[in-house]
């Protein structure tokens, strides 16, 4: 079993301590496990999480596999195209097809170089900004098939270290579900939600 860095372990322990019951920390710890492994969730990651909270590894896996965001196989960036009803009505199918085609993978697949995974997802809460896309869970709204291609091209070609919602919206987005207000300078560091207290955000 590979070990986590001291700093990550410290963060893990403080997450465990922040709940009335250690098992409640399983979700944040799984994100931490993904960050530690550079993206995908691994068996070793789940073993460490299990150890930290007094679960057996399969109990951790039972939780992890219930959710869609603890991915076992994922590229450095995750492009999620919403296909639920509002986006469906406004052409999500084409946007998703364009994105997958641009990366050269079937839907759900990861580019051979590991740069990008393209998936279709259920409603991500940007229905007024259809078609909605997230890159590493950061929104880009009002995306056309052409914009989806450019977005994917950029991710594949430039393989940016991190992504930012407002930047991507400016370059690839269209109408938003609502006025986003001022910018949020947080960097998303990979295919997990960028959230400071979990140690899964960079920059800002």
């Amino acid at each position: 079993m590979s070990a986590w860095s001291d700093e990550t372990m410290e963060r893990a322990q403080s997450l465990v301590a922040s709940y009335p019951d250690p098992r409640s920390a399983v979700m944040p710890l799984l994100y931490l496990a993904m960050r530690e492994e550079g993206g995908p969730l691994t068996d070793d990651g789940m073993r460490i999480v299990a150890d930290l909270i007094g679960y057996t590894p399969v109990q951790v896996q039972a939780v992890a596999s219930f959710y869609t965001m603890y991915k076992r196989h994922v590229g450095r960036h995750l492009v999620s195209v919403c296909t639920s009803i509002s986006c469906h009505l406004l052409g999500a199918g084409e946007v998703l097809a364009a994105a997958a085609d641009e990366v050269g993978v079937p839907v759900g697949g990861t580019a051979e170089d590991g740069s990008v995974t393209v998936e279709g997802v259920e409603c991500i809460g940007a229905c007024g900004g259809a078609v909605a896309v997230q890159v590493d869970y950061e929104f880009v709204e009002g995306v056309t098939p052409e914009a989806a291609r450019s977005l994917c091209r950029w991710l594949v070609d430039e393989s940016p270290e991190t992504v930012r919602s407002d930047d991507m919206q400016e370059r690839f987005g269209g109408a938003t579900a609502f006025d986003w207000g001022s910018e949020d300078p947080t960097d998303a560091v990979g295919p997990m939600p960028a959230f400071g207290p979990y140690g899964t955000a960079g920059g800002a």
Binding site: P20, Y67, M69, S80, V121, I124, G125, Q134, Y137, E138, F139, S165, D184, T186, A188, P193, A194, F195, G196, P197, A201
Partner: peptide, 19 residues
Amino acid sequence: HRVFVYVRGEYPRPARRMQ
């Protein structure tokens, strides 16, 4: 005396703003 705000995983930005 204890509140949890359960924010969906796909809402990191709302979560950051709340935090």
